[in-house]
Simulated assay, not measured.
Amino acid sequence: MKHTQSSLKIGIVLSSIPGYSETFFRNKIKGLQSNGLDVTLYVDTFSEVPQNLSCKVVSAPSLGNGFISKTIASCVAAVKCICLHPKRSLKHYNLDKADGLPFKHRIKNLLLNQYLLNQNLDWLHFGYGMLANSRENVAEAIGCKMAVSFRGFDLYLSPLKHKNCYKVLFSKKVKYHVLSEKMKHTLIANHISEQRIHVITPAIDINLFASGDYTTKAKENLEILCISRLHWVKGLNYVLEALAILKSDNIDFKFTIIGDGEERERLVFAAYQLGILEDVTFAGKLSQTEVLKALKQSNLYIQYSIQEGFGNAALEAQALGLPCVVSDADGLQQNVLHEKTGLVVPKRNPKALARAILELHSLDSEKKQHMADFAIQRVRNEFNIEKQTALFLEFYSN
């Protein structure tokens, strides 16, 4: 039974419940619910549901670790497939067979996806591309529409790590959501019809990041901030090299990185070898309140990623009127407007980055204020939650 738009049932599939920094999903869920849509979150790994997440959460059953527990869990899943939703299970099996999957893979997919096969939805929306892997036929099996979001890493890097990972997905009738025009053109290059691709950028709570008490007062020292997971794709090693260039030119600065990740030790050592460790603070993960405070205490924001779907933190910085220097990676070119809300420079080029930092810092107060005002107004007009919600309502309308 299909529903009117105000009562559409939307199932969003994620690997886990959105963390504190994954505001995109939280904002989306909240916006859809406020417009009367019924949203259920399906996760592979269950954790405690935070108080500010109001939707229903369904977790995939564990198939166990040891041989005996795996065997028991698999038998239970098989019984559910046969007894609870036999028609859907058979349809899923046959669809996988039509895709040329080996018998073993068909059975495995059936057992892994059985918790989804009894759901009654209008849309099954996979929050990342790789989450649709081995689940390409679930939506058709349960009689609903299928959507997939690509957020950057999954579109550009996952196919390098998992060859042909989207071969089956790209053959299906799927509606795609991407964060930027650059990502849209990447899908088109993979022979996806333009009509099936919708660009919906991230959005921020503009009231939380209102410019308020932030001013563009000139500071003698550079107070530079980056909010990023410590991963090689974020290009932080190039940022450190650029800052080493500034230090060699006797430019005083303080650089703070908010975030944590697998590259922390390597980056700390790189800062030490470059002679700038005393000028760099690895702040780790901070609360939203602490992040906001750090943004207001800075006078320049950097996002120098090698690959970036869009970059919420750069939007937050612009919402406060903070000048931004970003790389030309993917969605960052759409996020920051070159010479209007900041500077966009070629990635992997520490010398160009160092020049851009100096150029922005050297702007006179009038030009800085003009850039800040333009950035604030643009974020408020183009990247607010209300606009994002309206676009997702339109996305699910047909």
Rank of each mutant, 00 (worst) to 15 (best):
G100S: 00
I276S: 00
V345G: 00
S298A: 00
N250A: 15
E386M: 14
Q388R: 13
G143P: 10
Y214N: 01
Q303L: 09
I385Y: 13
A317I: 00
D213Q: 15
V291H: 11
E181Q: 13
K91S: 13
K97D: 00
N65W: 08
P350Y: 01
K108F: 11
C55K: 12
N65F: 03
V174N: 12
P18R: 02
G11K: 13
D99K: 06
L246R: 05
Q388T: 06
I302K: 01
R355H: 00
C83T: 08
L41C: 11
R229K: 04
S305W: 06
G259W: 03
P202I: 12
D38V: 01
A317S: 11
Q333F: 02
Y20E: 14
S193W: 01
I257V: 00
E241Q: 15
H361G: 10
N381Y: 14
R26L: 13
D279P: 00
K217D: 07
T341K: 07
A77Y: 06
A60V: 11
E308H: 03
K234R: 10
T186W: 08
H125Q: 08
L208W: 00
K9F: 05
G259I: 03
K347H: 13
A356V: 00
L295V: 03
E339W: 03
T71I: 05
K254R: 12
H338L: 12
G235T: 07
K234F: 08
D99W: 06
G261L: 09
S7N: 03
K285L: 14
G261N: 00
W232V: 05
V325P: 02
I192D: 03
V168E: 04
E140G: 08
F374Y: 14
S47I: 07
S211I: 14
S158Q: 14
R196C: 04
V345K: 09
D260P: 04
L243M: 11
K9G: 03
N133K: 15
L343G: 07
E194G: 12
Q307N: 10
S69A: 15
K175H: 08
F103A: 04
V325S: 12
I224F: 00
D260Q: 11
T389F: 11
S74M: 01
R106V: 09
Q303W: 02
P159C: 01
K285A: 15
T389C: 06
F150D: 07
I68E: 10
H162M: 15
